[in-house]
Nucleic acid binder design. Structure first.
Lengths: 189, 189
DNA sequence: GCAAATTAATGATTTATTCAAG
DNA sequence: CTTGAATAAATCATTAATTTGC
């Protein structure tokens, strides 16, 4: 809701058009993509393209100009916005607490031999399979070379654990609050 | 935020277990962080924490256990992985510098509707409190003081750069011609 | 049916962060 | 410590949808 919507355009009212001379026909409205253009862009996105290079933008733009007026920046912005909004959309759904089972907070089970956890950071984002391998198109030159992330497993951690001292932190509220605005929670350290 | 863009995963997200009621504890599957846990860890990372000490790991673990099952080693590994992957991600990108600089994309008049001149604002601001990047932690539970500090100045030049040059692109278009049908169209890249 | 009135989408800008080179 | 480069996040603003009173 909201999102600009209506209300008083207390912002950039009065000034429109480029100063210039009187009522030039500059028009200067915003890009209004045709269905074909959107279709193509969406297809590329679905195929995995997220942040096209300048070169790619150029090509896409040229190609799409066939379906209607368009500029490179429109393509750039489209990807920026689409990517962000998809992410935002997905983030909405995954905001729930998992469990509050306090019964066994310190169940530091050994369960060793456990390789380092994977980076689940992006879980919320690209829920889908944003396979970056997307080589559907001959993307520019260098695009290969992928993670060789081998995080060395330090025994260090185990050693340190021996010294570790447990202590209790206040356990914050137990209510189901909305996503706290922002980290007040960081104060526990 | 979670920078991101591409990620390698895309598989087996279906698993979960962990909490899940009375399951036998022998599962010993790998840690599956909740969104809250990831959020907190990410916040700490963004705040500057990179290699938490044993003590810190302990505290973080305890705090995060409120949101779901977790062990100290999970925290340790998370930081190791996250740090490494952020670095790697950055390195890869800068290696082949795909510039997305708008200055080159803007094929024409920015046609901007005069942004509000808010210069008046920044004049008298709290210039001080240049908080130490890494000492953010002992945050008091008081109020989160947002420090925009001198970043504004920094952005100044970026803005100029972004506004940059205007050159004209072909603004082809004009006629709506019929077009090739299918989606072999994606091959133009 | 049809415009004015409202709301929802989404294009375009600005602001904040991040890592790392200098 | 400062600054370059590249985004992602947040925000602003305009256009398309949709609703509403006639």
């Amino acid at each position: 809701m909201s999102s600009g919507g209506f209300s008083i355009k207390a912002r950039g009212l009065g000034n429109n058009n480029n100063g210039g001379g009187g009522g030039t026909g500059t028009k200067c409205g915003r890009w209004n993509p045709t269905v074909e253009q959107v279709k193509l862009l969406t297809d590329l996105f679905k195929a995995g393209l997220r942040t096209p290079s300048t070169d790619q933008i150029q090509k896409i733009s040229t190609e799409l100009s066939f379906y209607g007026k368009i500029e490179s920046k429109n393509v750039f912005y489209w990807f920026q916005n689409h990517k962000a909004r998809e992410r935002q959309k997905r983030r909405k759904i995954s905001t729930h607490r998992q469990d509050t089972d306090l019964s066994r907070l310190h169940g530091d089970q050994p369960c060793r031999h456990q390789p380092p956890s994977k980076d689940i950071l992006d879980v919320c984002e690209e829920e889908e399979k944003v396979i970056e391998t997307l080589q559907l198109f001959p993307l520019s030159k260098v695009e290969r070379v992928r993670a060789n992330v081998s995080v060395t497993i330090h025994n260090e951690y185990i050693r340190e654990q021996a010294n570790a001292t447990a202590f209790s932190t206040y356990s914050s509220c137990g209510a189901e609050m909305e996503h706290p605005p922002l980290d007040l929670r960081l104060s526990f350290l």
